[in-house]
Structure formats: structure tokens, C-alpha cells
Simulated scan of single mutants.
Amino acid sequence: MNRSRVLPLAAVSLTTAAALLLTGCGGDDSGSSDKSKDKAAGSDAKKQESAGAETDGAGGADRTPEVDRPAMKFPKDMSMVFEKTKLSDPEQAAALNDAENYARSTVYGIIKQDPEDAAYKFYSEPKSPAAKYAKYQIDKHASGGLSLSGERRHSDAKVQPAKGSGGKKGGFVVTFCSDDSKIKGKDLQSGSTFPFEPGLQNFWLWTVDMVPSKSTEGLWVAHDVAVKDKAKECQ
């Protein structure tokens, strides 16, 4: 059986992501054909080895303890490893923290098989390209009964003020790499797992535009996201 992943975004805005993803999946968006063993978005840049149940989705919520965050409990066969990134600016640190949580919530929705899961909605601006991206990825996997297992690693996180914002009350652009070399797809109907081919296609460069939440003080949410596939800079 041929298996393909879902994420050939090639560093474009999510306003055009759906068409590219469908192209990358051979034009079949059912998620159940021979070309439909999808692979999901991943993210984070904070090296706490949060495997499965250790990943509760708080994701550094100690920085903003007043925010009531949704829990994200991963199964034991799914591990997410984050490289610690020290930032002196508290606003940048908070934006990075929630960019990581946004990426984590996308994977969590895939694990839950729920395109309406509360976690990704909490960490993305309503009706934004980032929210649409997360929902698309989750729906794509759920429609084919496909999930993930293994270990996803994230590294080399950087945070910069969005152009013209100056940070603070404006926005930040968060970038980080993800490594899917140790990730496997999982067929939920049979319970079997299958590896993906090794190589550059397992490395992704994420760019996430983060803005302050309009409804929750202390929370940053993803407005837009772009994912570059076959990212040599992340290998």
C-alpha cells in the first residue's frame, strides 16, 4: 500500500494551503485511498521531553498561570520533544510558548480524531488561516482513520516582532523546525503502524504569526502559519 503525508505546504500562507495539500495527496482528499496515509503538522521549541501523558498542554503556563488552558493528554505511544529556548523578553517568551501550544494542539486533534477539538481553537484566532489549517489537518486524518505514533522533535526556535508591530501589543513571528524522522503513521482500523521513508521530507520549517488574544489576557494565539517542507535548514 502506498502511503503519503499531508503537509507539502512549501512555505505558503494557509489561505492557499488546502489546494496545495490536495495536490500533494494526489488530488484525493478522502484520506482513505492508497495515497492517503497522512502525516501531520507538528511543532514546539522547548526541550521538555513531553511524552504522552506528560504533555498536558499547559506548555509553560507557569508564565501566565491566570490563563485557564485546555488539557492535552497524549497517549504513551506519542512523544513530543521540545528544545528549550531562553528568551529574556516576557512577551516573546509567552508568544513562543503559545506558538508551541498551537502546534501541539494540531497534533492533539489528530490523536483525538476531532476536527472540532477545543485545544486548537483555543490557541488560534477564530476563523483565521491558522485555525483553518489546524482543522484541515485534523479532518484530513480523521476522515481516513489515520493517527500518529512515535517521537516528534522540535528545535531552533526564534521570535521576532512582526513587521511594523514593534512587539508588545503588536504581534510576533515565531519560527522553529520539526523533525518527523521517528514518527510513524497509525491505521486506527487495523491498529497497525507504518514508517515513512527516511530523508529530507521529514524536516519542516514552521513560521507562525502570533497575536495577543482579544478575549483572554495573557494568551497569544496563532493568526497565520506557513510550513516549508523538505527544509534543509532543519536537517
Rank of each mutant, 00 (worst) to 15 (best):
R3Q: 10
S4C: 02
R5A: 03
L7M: 15
P8I: 11
S13R: 03
L14Y: 15
T15L: 15
A18Q: 12
A18G: 00
A19E: 12
L20R: 14
L20I: 15
G26I: 14
G26K: 14
D29L: 08
S30A: 14
S33F: 01
S33P: 00
D34P: 01
S36L: 07
D38A: 12
D38T: 11
G42V: 09
D44W: 05
K46C: 08
K46A: 15
K47L: 12
E54A: 13
T55A: 15
T55Q: 09
D56P: 00
G59S: 13
G59I: 07
D62T: 06
R63N: 13
P65R: 02
A71E: 12
K73R: 12
F74S: 04
P75Q: 09
P75W: 11
K76T: 10
M78F: 05
F82E: 13
F82G: 12
K86T: 11
L87I: 13
S88H: 04
D89M: 01
A95P: 03
L96I: 03
N97V: 00
A99V: 02
N101C: 08
N101Y: 05
Y102R: 00
A103L: 10
R104Q: 15
S105F: 00
S105N: 06
T106M: 11
T106V: 15
Y108C: 02
I110M: 11
I111A: 09
K112S: 10
K112I: 05
Q113S: 13
D114L: 01
A118F: 00
A118N: 00
A119V: 07
A119K: 04
Y120G: 06
Y123M: 06
S124P: 05
P126I: 10
P126T: 12
S128N: 13
S128R: 05
P129Y: 12
K132R: 14
A134Q: 05
A134H: 07
K135P: 00
K135R: 14
Q137P: 01
I138V: 13
D139Y: 00
D139A: 04
G144W: 11
G144M: 07
L146N: 02
L148D: 14
L148R: 11
E151M: 04
H154M: 04
A157Q: 04
A157C: 10
K158F: 05
Q160H: 08
P161F: 08
A162R: 00
K163I: 01
K163D: 08
K163V: 07
S165F: 02
G166I: 10
G167V: 12
K168E: 03
K169H: 08
F172E: 03
V173Q: 06
F176D: 03
F176H: 07
C177W: 01
D179P: 06
D179E: 06
K182V: 01
K186Y: 12
L188G: 07
G191P: 08
S192C: 00
P195V: 13
F196V: 02
G199Q: 10
W206K: 07
V208E: 09
V211S: 03
P212E: 08
K214Y: 11
G218L: 10
W220E: 05
K228I: 00
D229L: 06
A231F: 02
K232C: 02
